[in-house]
Design a protein around this nucleic acid. Structure first.
Lengths: 212, 212, 212, 212
DNA sequence: TATGAATGAGTCTTCATTCAT
DNA sequence: GATGAATGAAGACTCATTCAT
């Protein structure tokens, strides 16, 4: 899966990075406020601090802005997440920490994650595939951790449920953003983490049933 | 929370209902394919089987279409759900069934639920509030069931976690639709239900820890 | 060579013909004044007597306007030309009349012919091919007349020169328009016809040389 | 008719000439490929081998490029033409040679002549006047030759037809370029010259009629 | 002199909405 | 009630031109 390339008329790579960072930052805010479709390229340019002409020196089309946002959000989430991880941990501590760290990053990058979550569907087939691939990469990371936990006898998930369980964790993170209208009014991120860890690990606390 | 009223130039209420049903059906399909913003009112009219002029006899603006969709999806979900419920059940069977029935309805109304899920953010403040209120009503239904289960000693959730747990169930249902690109390739709805019930009830199968 | 079809959102074919005639008329004038590229679609709409939105109900793109112009100019030229022809004539009279009639039509449709002449190169590959095919059809008509004249012993052109000679006549007609800045100041169409007939038939009046 | 002056920020006249020659060469190619309006100044700069900023050190506006092209094409045509002429010739040989030489130059400078022919109409009033003046100068050269031929009893053109006949020769040359899509497929320049000389001198080979 | 990033007026095109028939 | 032609505000994108370095 090759990175889709976003055309630029400007040659200086450093400048490109800088300007695109400005663009992404402005776009995240605007897309959050008004949504991708209602945010005009002109408004993005303005919010980025330059003219519409300059904006188009760094992108090829409006969709490229959305792509840059999604792409950079993933990179940012993953890199921040990895920073928080402690490779030496094992067992329950390790799994807890992996999940907790992820939740904390999602909380820190709430606006970014929400935009990516709600607007990525407006990407073109090709760009969407690339973005979803990144999502799957994250899923696989959780899957690995779950597999490791299973080896350690920590969890009782079957092989076939691993994938679903990994999705479950990811969605639990996103849920903090896309349900914030309901959840964040009543819970802090700390409470949310505590709850989700317990929920994910032991569910509603019901006793397992042998058959079923 | 008053139902937002959608203006119509036509008097006959029966006709209004009929036409609006056509509109919703066409719109769900179109919004699924292209998204709300890229679907034109012209296309909705055409897919509904009448002219653009006629479309506007039954709605006041494009947003009304989205509102009608969201509104009717909720009504449909709730009514189908209630049909499946067996009020006489109690205990674990009852909770299982409530959740399972919900998942089945979501599966049956996949396209509808997905559209509502992805596009409702494009509603106006007022309409959105109304729609979210319906979402909350569903949440409260699950909350009641959880409370009842708690009374029966079935679950160990604290009072404060009830709300979150109810959201968790709702999101688990939606997840089946908005993650279908990844999940439905690998799992059937039966498998999904089995997994989610176990996940919700007992988590990854880890032992509870006394202090937390 | 299929007629390229120009898309229209309007269904009534009669209305389409009417509006497109308005568009062509306005476009010819505008394109003459400012050229195809400098004439805006807005200006065409305005000169046509309706709004920009309405313009786009009858065409798919700006290029379609140019195509409609070129297409209709050819049709008009050919149909007017044929009206002037007298099939019963033969010999020198016939050839004279065919050419003269053509010149007269070109004179009557000066603006139209000039636009087509100067702007057709801006058509897309496909549309251009179609338009040039019409030009070739006219060329072939002249070629036939020349062949007939040769059979009657009227002209001494070789078989291989027929095509070139037909082009020569066509260009002589166009020349009246694209050189009008120089020629029409000094000559009337009558004088021009008299001159060209003599020029085409007998050249500068030099004696033929046996070997060339 | 003063030469329109093209402003330059650079002082060194030699450098100016050199750069402008580069510009003209690049522009001719680009204008041929895409037409004047679709060729961007950026593309011209690039094809010229320097930056857009540098381009504007040597011209004042895009139109100046077109003007430089037209101007230089005429100069080139005329100077090459004069090189080919043999002043000592007289009579039919002289006229033939003058025309033939002109055709050969046009053939050699096909792209240049075609661009000038098709795009000069996009020049401003003032620049166009200047360019057309050069065209008229060429016309007058032919006119002189025809007058001389008439004095020698070679041609039977009336005084009033001289001008038109001179235009005819010029257009016959241009025709080789702007009809190349049809003519150059079937004829070589040698064949074309042979044909045109005969056509211009003796027409289709019909007998003159006394009255007319 | 040379460069190329920045600018923003201008262009094509779309599409929700209206209203006369 | 139904139709669909007409409208024009608004939006994405281009490109000639400028100017600081």
């Amino acid at each position: 899966m090759r990175k889709k390339d976003v055309p630029s008329l400007v040659k200086d790579p450093h400048l490109i990075d800088m300007r695109r960072a400005q663009i992404v930052k402005a776009a995240v805010q605007l897309f959050n406020e008004k949504g991708y479709h209602k945010a005009t390229t002109r408004a993005v340019a303005e919010a980025s601090g330059f003219s519409i002409g300059t904006l188009y020196e760094y992108i090829g089309s409006k969709e490229d802005i959305l792509y840059l946002v999604c792409d950079s959000v993933y990179d940012e989430v993953i890199s921040r997440w990895e920073e928080l991880l402690d490779e030496k941990l094992t067992g329950r501590e390790r799994l807890s920490q992996v999940i907790e760290a992820y939740f904390r990053v999602v909380n820190d990058l709430q606006d970014e994650v929400l935009v990516m979550y709600q607007e990525s569907k407006s990407l073109s087939e090709e760009a969407l595939r690339y973005v979803l691939e990144k999502e799957l990469r994250m899923k696989r990371m959780f899957e690995q951790e779950l597999t490791r936990a299973k080896k350690e006898g920590l969890v009782t998930l079957t092989e076939g449920e691993m994938s679903l369980a990994a999705h479950q964790i990811l969605v639990a993170g996103h849920m903090w953003t896309f349900r914030r209208w309901a959840i964040q009014r009543d819970y802090s991120i700390e409470e949310y983490i505590t709850y989700q860890l317990r929920q994910l690990f032991t569910g509603f606390g019901m006793k397992e049933i042998s058959s079923s």
